Computed example of a mutant assay.
Amino acid sequence: MSKSPFQTPNRRGFLIGGAALLSSPALAQSTDSTEEQAYDPLRPPPEPEPPVRRNISSFKAQSWQPYFSNTRNGAILVDTQSRVLHYWSEDQSVYRLFPSSVPLTEDMTRRGRTSVIRKVEGPSWSPTPSMKKRNPEWPDHIPPGPDNPLGSHALYLSWKYYRIHGTHDTRKIGRKSSNGCIGLYNEHISELFSMTKIGTQVLLI
């Protein structure tokens, strides 16, 4: 599996600049704006987290019943603590469990019920107005391809700016590495993409 950071000199500059900005107190401040909490795909992964004792039992199969009243249109459960995404098909004949990336901080973590409203294979990415204001050197648009921070596929949620998507930077999976979105390995988002439909239920806990 190849890692594809931004490959042109200018895009390397964005990553280097993003790494410096990551330590800025201004960026660490939380706001009430949904846009400010949007996923920041140009931000590189944080430094390695300090060693913690993992609860391996949390990364295990779950039953859908404690979380959903039914599985109409399929159901996705994202556990931000164990950093795992669960999927059940509508007829419950298919169950999948995928490791995921999660938001960088508690302030950036949104929980609750939403749904898939759009599916895009080969997504493009553009910064939100607040991202562009903070980082005017960032590009206005990144087309689909190996440089795109949303990976190979994206599931757009009813929450504005929030997505479940792939990533070409596999270091992010299993870590706190986004400003709100949930990331999967490209091969996993491809599989999830093929199983979900518009209207698939999503719950983040």
Rank of each mutant, 00 (worst) to 15 (best):
G13C: 05
G13H: 10
G13E: 10
G18M: 10
A19N: 07
L21R: 11
S24T: 09
P25Y: 03
A28S: 13
T31K: 08
S33M: 00
E35C: 06
Q37F: 09
D40N: 15
D40Q: 11
P44E: 04
P45A: 15
P45E: 09
E47M: 12
P48M: 05
E49K: 13
R54A: 14
N55W: 03
N55G: 03
I56Y: 09
F59V: 13
K60C: 06
S63Q: 15
W64K: 04
W64S: 08
Q65F: 14
P66E: 14
P66T: 14
Y67V: 07
S69Q: 10
S69V: 09
S69Y: 03
T71L: 14
N73K: 11
G74N: 10
I76D: 00
L77S: 09
V78R: 11
D79S: 13
T80D: 01
R83C: 03
L85Y: 04
V94L: 10
Y95M: 06
L97C: 09
F98S: 05
S100Q: 07
S101K: 00
V102F: 00
P103S: 14
L104V: 01
T105W: 02
E106M: 07
R110F: 04
R111P: 02
G112F: 15
R113A: 12
I117V: 15
W125M: 08
P127D: 12
K132F: 09
K132T: 07
R134F: 11
R134Q: 09
R134A: 13
E137G: 11
D140M: 14
I142F: 13
I142K: 13
P143V: 12
P143H: 11
P144F: 12
G145S: 11
G145P: 04
P146M: 14
P146H: 12
P149Q: 13
L150C: 09
G151F: 06
K160G: 08
H165R: 06
S177I: 03
S177N: 06
S177K: 02
I182Y: 01
E187R: 07
H188V: 07
I189Y: 00
I189E: 00
S190G: 12
F193L: 05
F193N: 01
F193W: 07
S194E: 02
S194R: 01
M195H: 03
T196E: 09
K197T: 15
I198C: 01
G199W: 11
Q201P: 08
L204W: 06
